[in-house]
Design a protein around this nucleic acid. Structure first.
Lengths: 197, 197
DNA sequence: TCCACCATGTAACTGGTTACATGATTAC
DNA sequence: GTAATCATGTAACCAGTTACATGGTGGA
């Protein structure tokens, strides 16, 4: 069973936090600062169907409280496993090459599913990968700066600065995680049908 | 005639710099630090066909120099106009919401097609848009920080830091553009058949 | 001769976009 | 009653991905 599209993992992660309907998930994308994702019904509902076809989630209609019928999705054990597998993946250089969106998404949901200790390890790996990647970009720049046109050089420098700011952020995030006591991680909590909303 | 996909504009901009074959363009994406774009033949060749169908580029086979036949693409007047229209578009907040990739792409090719003076204006607009956008993110963070889970808050802060580094970069880029004398801009130069490679 | 690279293309699949359709419930 | 919002879905379209196919050319 191969990779899911990013949206699929984002959905798994959100459903892991709380069993949700398609509408809930759309709101989550539209309202929170997770702006990156689609939130259009034409993306969410088919994606949920695909996840269900792969038995990563299961949707059950809930007619509670006089509302219109909503189909609440729950993670299956397979789904939980798939989510963890994704979160626990080693961080490759390629995860940085087109921006660190996927890495950040993983970070955002990692604590809950894998615990603070693992998250700290991830942050350190992230920091090291960024350091290496920045070094590569720097040497590319040093070798080509003179023969590059000014706007191209500046655009590259903008990218490098962006990665540098992310590198600084990893240190900041690690500090925040050190201050925060390592509480027993919540991955133990199983979401069962019944704790609706 | 509506928007092209980003890849289309990237191709127009590269072809504007130098008439190129599909292979040249693939190399440009694969080798230079423009890593963001596809470079796969299944993306480039169909995209070129679409551009040609819209009469934005014209491909002519060139059998020069004993090499295998290559189809060199040139910008048409329509293509030149479309490129400029895209480059000259006002910068909206939405151009920042999912990362500034398109804005940076425009910047990278703007000088050549619209001149240094316009590029300076663009950079100032970019700076101001970033400032406003960062202010919005900051106030969102201030209002929600306490009720956000730690990883979510940190992820948002990472994003804010990234935009801030871009803001700093605009100042840096403007300085670079001020030092550089405003030479008569190269948009005058027309690429004609004959300066092949 | 054979390999590496130049160069172009095609086909099947995938998933996301926009736009539309539908209907239930709540608040005024 | 009617407007806003909750809630789910569908269809047509579009472009990008992977994988494959093909053949020319130059150098070992």
């Amino acid at each position: 069973m191969s990779d899911l599209p990013l949206l699929g993992y984002a959905l798994l992660a959100l459903i892991d936090q709380k069993p949700s309907s398609g509408y809930d998930l759309r709101k989550a994308f539209a309202e929170t600062a997770m702006g990156n994702y689609s939130s259009s019904p034409g993306a969410i509902y088919p994606a949920l169907e695909r996840l269900e076809a792969q038995r990563l989630v299961r949707g059950v209609v809930s007619k509670s409280a006089g509302l219109r019928r909503r189909r609440l999705y729950y993670l299956t054990l397979r789904g939980k496993a798939e989510l963890k597998k994704w979160l626990a993946r080693p961080l490759e250089e390629i995860d940085l090459m087109r921006g660190a969106g996927e890495a950040m998404l993983r970070f955002a949901f990692m604590d809950r599913a894998l615990g603070a200790t693992y998250t700290r390890v991830f942050l350190r790996n992230f920091r090291d990968a960024l350091k290496a990647y920045i070094a590569g970009l720097d040497s590319y720049l040093a070798q080509n700066a003179t023969r590059m046109p000014l706007p191209g050089r500046l655009a590259l420098e903008c990218g490098i600065r962006g990665y540098r700011s992310m590198y600084d952020w990893t240190a900041y995030a690690l500090r925040a995680y050190r201050q925060q006591p390592t509480k027993p991680h919540s991955a133990v909590r199983k979401s069962k049908p019944g704790d609706s909303r």
